[in-house]
Write a protein that binds this DNA or RNA. Structure first.
Lengths: 257, 257
DNA sequence: AAAAATTATTGACCTAGATCAATAACTCAT
DNA sequence: ATGAGTTATTGATCTAGGTCAATAATTTTT
């Protein structure tokens, strides 16, 4: 039986210090006083149910979002109707900054499960960034990371075989969870096979077959969305399409899994 | 016969106002006084011969580069030796910002032809950005644009057939030149077929065949690196793999709000 | 200016992964 | 619980584009 008051209390106190993720999130590296200024700017905490949108492509841009819990899929689409998943986003990640240049969102963000986010008005954040050098730097840092991770994704889709792409995807998820104190070898996929396939530029069927194949090889166990990695090194080896294995680093403190 | 003194004079005066590209470049939208402050920060003008590196992957990051003339190819590589071209960069573009997060470059930038760049020490730029709101905004703007263009590239490689990828590539070059007052229908490719293929995630042979194919269709003439587009609409149609044609927008016609 | 090296084109063939199709397993609304 | 609608798995086939190979055009080196 749960004590409702505890839940309500935590919901009321919207402070970064009280959030377990603050060292991965926006306030990363801020001095105490600056963190309070940031707190005063964070509008509120919002709860998003599975399938709800955080924002949609073409929406006016005014707010960036920090994920507290849950997970979010972002994707762009073109007129022809084709969609491209651009990433899955986990707690601590900052979403929406890439709309700065157009002033409207160029992708949609939809919750993959019940998700809680902090909303930060971008204008206020820009003001803060002027006064707090480390905040300004952090925003550039976050965007720079996103670019790097996009380049990595590009390379993966353009140059690596299907097997290596899925292995890398799983390893990066694993690293992400590991970094945050969760199990790196056993976790839950909040996204569908379809979404994974789309992100990796593959057909669903290929992803399905690869999961089965990895399982047959004894590299992992997969049962629907539950993954247990048995042979991390083995998985890594499959990501090396040439000779030496390129270890996948957690694009961590932020960005894509 | 050329008058050397004119050339020397323009080389001496390192001011943004005197540069034909200033409305596409870093000083975009700056007030006059602010532009002078920017001028005082720009270290020098550097000339890079074809094949020389502006910077290499893993180099320490200290400087961002604005291209004045010529063109630059950026690419990342992984341990296995595979390389991924991440972009071709033309006058007015700003290079290097994506190294902010790691403090060292994660890609290499090599000149495709004789190229002239302005060097801006990043630390000084960060300082300026604190004092000049529109400069801070512009830096975020540039990075946001880069992310959007990477997402577009991702979508292209993951979802579009080879023909559409090359057509889009040519159209975006065309738009870029058009925007800068050059011919949108006749231009020179400074990059090799190999580089184009790499950027688009294709084999050289495929690119070659597609050029021939486009020519057979009467869409364009190609002679080595010289391109003349005859049927812009026709080219656009080939980029629509489904139904309606997604018009390619120039990746770098920066508009400040 | 000739030789060597690089870059581009074209053809013949082949394969990784897409597509099509048929179940099976799960989710959700009633 | 029950049926409708998803989502996942597996097999059979097909194809876009990759690979291999030969040649030509161009650039670079000597």
């Amino acid at each position: 039986m749960k004590d409702k008051t505890v839940i309500d209390l935590s919901a009321l106190r919207v402070t970064c210090q009280s959030c377990g993720l603050y060292q991965f999130c926006l306030p990363m590296g801020l001095a105490e006083g600056d963190m309070e200024r940031l707190d005063s700017v964070i509008k509120r905490r919002r709860k998003i149910e599975k399938g709800e949108y955080l924002y949609r492509m073409h929406d006016a841009f005014s707010t960036v979002y920090a994920i507290r819990s849950g997970s979010v899929k972002t994707y762009t689409s073109i007129e022809s109707g084709a969609e491209q998943v651009t990433g899955f986003h986990l707690p601590g990640e900052l979403l929406g900054l890439n709309a700065v240049s157009t002033q409207h969102h160029t992708n949609s963000a939809i919750a993959l499960e019940t998700t809680s986010v902090c909303e930060v008005p971008f204008e206020r954040l820009e003001e803060l960034a002027r006064d707090i050098p480390s905040m300004q730097h952090h925003m550039l840092h976050v965007m720079s990371q996103e670019i790097q991770s996009d380049h990595c994704q590009l390379m993966m889709i353009a140059k690596m075989p299907a097997e290596a792409r899925l292995a890398r995807f799983l390893l990066s998820l694993s690293a992400h969870f590991g970094n945050r104190g969760f199990s790196a070898t056993e976790f839950h996929l909040s996204m569908s096979r379809n979404d994974i396939a789309n992100l990796l530029g593959l057909a669903v069927e290929t992803v399905s077959r690869l999961f089965s194949h990895f399982q047959d090889e004894g590299l992992l166990s997969v049962e629907r969305k539950h993954i247990v990695i048995h042979d991390m090194d083995g998985l890594m080896n499959t990501t090396a399409q040439g000779s030496s294995q390129p270890l996948p680093k957690d694009s961590s403190s932020n960005q894509r899994p």
